[in-house]
């Protein structure tokens, strides 16, 4: 609930190194990154999603910030769920959607595209 009620890193990065949008069950999540060397120094998100999508996107930006790009490229929905200390069963899809948005942004930053 904290990451839903007080989401971290809302918005979009100016001049992002990597940026991607992911859509699932009618929700859209956009994650943008700024990379310095091999490290993600800033990650931001926007989403039209439900409470779960907001909390998960917030968690993804926290997980990505400070992470090396290669490490970040292994981000999974389980990492997001663990970071949030669990999620209700009906919100686990939100973790998938947010993690995928983060991964796509990381791949964009790595220049690999989708």
């Amino acid at each position: 609930m904290d990451h839903f009620l007080n989401p971290r890193n809302v918005g979009s990065v100016d001049g992002p190194t990597g940026m991607a949008e992911n859509e699932d069950c009618g929700d859209v999540a956009t994650i943008s990154l700024r990379v310095d060397g091999e490290q993600i120094v800033e990650a931001r998100f926007q989403t039209t999603g439900c409470s779960g999508a907001i909390a998960c996107c917030s968690a993804v930006t926290e997980l990505l910030t400070g992470s090396a790009l290669q490490v970040a490229s292994e981000l999974t929905a389980e990492d997001v769920i663990d970071y949030l200390d669990g999620l209700p069963t009906d919100k686990r899809g939100c973790a998938k959607m947010a993690a995928m948005a983060g991964l796509k942004a990381v791949r964009d930053a790595l220049g690999a595209g989708d």
Partner: peptide
């Protein structure tokens, strides 16, 4: 553009 579910939970809070 935003979810009613999110509004309900935030209003509840």
């Amino acid at each position: 553009g935003i979810k009613g579910e999110a509004i309900v939970l935030e209003m509840d809070a």
